[in-house]
Write a protein that binds this DNA or RNA. Structure first.
Lengths: 231, 231
DNA sequence: TGTACATCAGTGAACGCGCGTTCACTGATGTAC
DNA sequence: TGTACATCAGTGAACGCGCGTTCACTGATGTAC
């Protein structure tokens, strides 16, 4: 039975992360607190170091988990829609992000909020970080195949053209520069809106922020995929 | 000379805020630190309490100042453009916000980043907070007068219609619901983009973020003020 | 113009609190022969 | 199958640090007569 200790270890590791998530939900991501976690586990604070080498290590694990959860939510939402319906796919993915963010605001802010002071994200976070974005890129790809044109045609600056070329090579995307820029803009607007809603920026201004987000997403979909001819 | 003590007091109050801003620029807005400020002033930490009743009071003063500075930057940029040229006005204001944010990232994040944990903004911040937004609303107003129509026509949810009506009454704006919603979306997208750029969300993805922002702003202007007939 | 009093800025010590991390240790669980 | 040894989880005490805030105080600056 080589697995007993290993299984207990895995369970405790998961429990530490779960408690950390719960505490972040109460005090904000910046207030991740090893001693408080240990207290809640009924352990002495130094015991945490058997599971994570440092506070930053735990933070990294939480960030990676969050990126993966968001990415998975996006992938699942995308997979549930007819692959040719690019607008529907965009909306499904946008709402999946919004729903996930509303359910787990602290985890969303851990990824897209003000960076935790003193924390520098290591390499391990890069791949999971792109997971959600890749879903959007695949939708852009299909849209390009259908000859989609943004409602307002952007002029893509030269420097950005190079960046887009690199992204295309990395991801195998076939979207042209204009669609890429419009898509990137929509991505930013989407996450900007989610962040503002979570941070209460619309408090005392807009009552039904959910309804507003729905309309924001529709606007964005219309702007990116203005002319589309599904096969 | 009743004013000597008062003037010294005003100067020291300003100096405290200046040091606080400088330290926030280094350690992030959440790490505002009364003792460090006192140390830098060569005072004992309790002396700060002659000028601000608490850490939260100092934070509030900084937030109010920042909102006013951003608002002023927006107003100045708007005033420098022909009032009938709504697109040019929008672009001028957008770039003013971007420039201000790049020059004072910590102050921008103080306003639009993740809220400082444990801090609740008091009433005093409400009026300054709307100052920049009012500039955008006045542009929308002029655009409405010129019969502007968004590139993608939004459907405005009922609940949001009520909120817009209240905003119109408060601000005397004459923009219709569709324009309001498109404007609000552009506002969110603008600030979302700025926040993401400041937080380094595009690091290793886009090299020339300045150029990208310029194009984002143009896209947004085109989306909100699609059909405009200047008088 | 001079004096008595009130106001106020700044001091220094203390309170109570909590954090991340290290280290030598004990005792239980696993492994190899 | 049993025993000797190695691995590992968790302990408890300590280090070094820093924070916001309170309070009784001193001494200088302003005010009123």
């Amino acid at each position: 039975m080589t697995g007993v200790r290993a299984r207990v270890r895995a369970e405790l590791t998961a429990e530490i992360k779960a408690i950390a998530r719960r505490q972040m939900a109460e005090d904000g991501p910046a207030n991740l607190n090893l001693r408080a976690i240990a207290r809640e586990l009924g352990m002495v604070s130094s015991a945490i170091y058997r599971y994570f080498a440092s506070r930053d290590d735990l933070l990294t694990a939480l960030i990676v988990d969050a990126y993966n959860a968001l990415g998975e939510a996006g992938e699942a939402a995308d997979a549930a829609v007819d692959p040719h319906e690019v607008r529907a796919r965009f909306l499904a993915v946008a709402h999946a992000a919004y729903r996930w963010a509303c359910e787990k605001p602290s985890q969303y802010l851990l990824l897209f909020g003000t960076p935790v002071p003193g924390y520098a994200a290591p390499q391990d976070t890069i791949v999971p970080a792109t997971r959600f974005t890749l879903v959007l890129l695949r939708i852009l790809d299909e849209a390009a195949r259908q000859g989609a044109v943004p409602a307002v045609r952007p002029t893509v600056p030269d420097g950005v053209r190079d960046d887009f070329r690199a992204m295309r090579e990395l991801t195998g995307s076939g979207a042209d520069d204009e669609l890429m820029l419009a898509g990137m803009q929509s991505w930013t607007a989407l996450f900007g809106a989610i962040g503002f809603i979570l941070n209460g920026q619309f408090r005392n201004v807009i009552g039904d922020v959910d309804a507003m987000f729905v309309e924001f997403a529709r606007l964005l979909a219309g702007q990116v995929f203005h002319e589309v001819d599904p096969a």
